[in-house]
Write a protein that binds this DNA or RNA. Structure first.
Lengths: 191, 191
DNA sequence: GTGTTTTATTAAACTAGTTTATTTTTTTCG
DNA sequence: CGAAAAAAATAAACTAGTTTAATAAAACAC
């Protein structure tokens, strides 16, 4: 029998109460537990009706590939975070891929919508995602890549540990070459 | 007596039904009709508990001022659009200002939250805002300022008409000088 | 372990976009 | 209308970040 305990405790937390057995059964019936290997693709640009993912363990990245074939990481998701394309069920423009071996609980859009009416905290979560993206947008627009790297280091040091450098550079909107320069410069400063 | 008809028809549209008299009264009781003159500030960075605005007529911009004092326009809102800082009631980092003389229906966060439970379309609206911002983010990151200007011209020609050029440049993340160059270049190309 | 592939560094020439300053055009308003 | 203020254009010198290419270091696989 698969272990859904992390998912239960998530809903208990946002519902601010214990779940009944019936509720647990409902959760098991609408979520699918899945595992993805490192570099395994979860969905591709062009796919329709992509699912929502609540991450149990591991690390995912959502990205685009632009006209010139260059990748841009939009978002990373790790333990106890949601990730997915909110424009589903419409055709997605994004790719979702595992950076590490990752296990998730996935749910369809329709089940997600219905569960959202029960746990209103879930829509508050979408709102928080919006706020997060807005901050990130402002930061990329108004700050230098060095400042943004610095900030990422402060806010999410373990992400910087776990991700190869070229994924971070693409998240910051610069080339790996330039990020490498920034890091070299910072190292020089330090002493 | 103030005219709330645009607001009624908005709720009738998203609720997909006619409003009862009681519902109309409720709307009048929670919304406040306000008018702002050109360049009038609606809220400032640092303000708490900012309101949400549904625009009847006119044009607003939401922007930040960065460390160096430079403005960045995040969003414009015009007729029949919502605008506001979703992180309310927390302290806002944004400024909201009228670009033209503008009339709005404004609502507090608490009333907004309660009305949201009645008209679930409103949370779908937040989700759409997220999707819009995500697209904009990708565009700014992965395309040149010229491509982004081109796209704005196609998607929102009347915005380009109604806004001074320096507001558009700040929306595209470039200086007014550079946008002016882009426009000159485009004009040269055309013939 | 050592050979292969992946990731990171460095250098040099380049470009998209900035800055500052001056001039021209357009808008505002008494 | 005419004067003053606001917005846009142009030019020139500059810089943050890119590109390409070559080298070095780490991680992976058998």
């Amino acid at each position: 029998m698969e272990d859904f305990s992390l998912l239960y405790s998530y809903f208990e937390k946002i519902g601010n109460r214990e779940l009944t057995d019936t509720e647990k059964e409902e959760i098991v019936s609408v979520f699918r537990k899945e595992t993805f290997n490192k570099k395994q693709r979860i969905f591709n640009a062009g796919d329709e009706n992509t699912r929502h993912y609540y991450i149990e363990k591991g690390l995912l990245r959502m990205y685009i590939i632009d006209q010139s074939g260059k990748e841009f990481n939009l978002l990373f998701g790790k333990e106890r975070q949601w990730l997915g394309d909110l424009s589903t069920p419409a055709t997605t423009s994004y790719y979702l891929e595992a950076v590490e071996k990752t296990t998730v609980f996935s749910i369809s859009e329709s089940a997600f919508a219905s569960i959202m009416s029960k746990y209103t905290e879930l829509s508050a979560n979408i709102r928080r995602s919006y706020i997060f993206l807005q901050k990130r947008f402002v930061a990329i627009l108004s700050k230098t890549a060095e400042e943004n790297y610095e900030e990422l280091l402060n806010n999410d040091p373990d992400l910087v540990q776990r991700l190869p450098q070229y994924h971070i550079s693409s998240y910051l909107g610069v080339t790996p070459v330039f990020l490498s320069k920034i890091i070299a410069k910072r190292a020089r400063k330090k002493d």
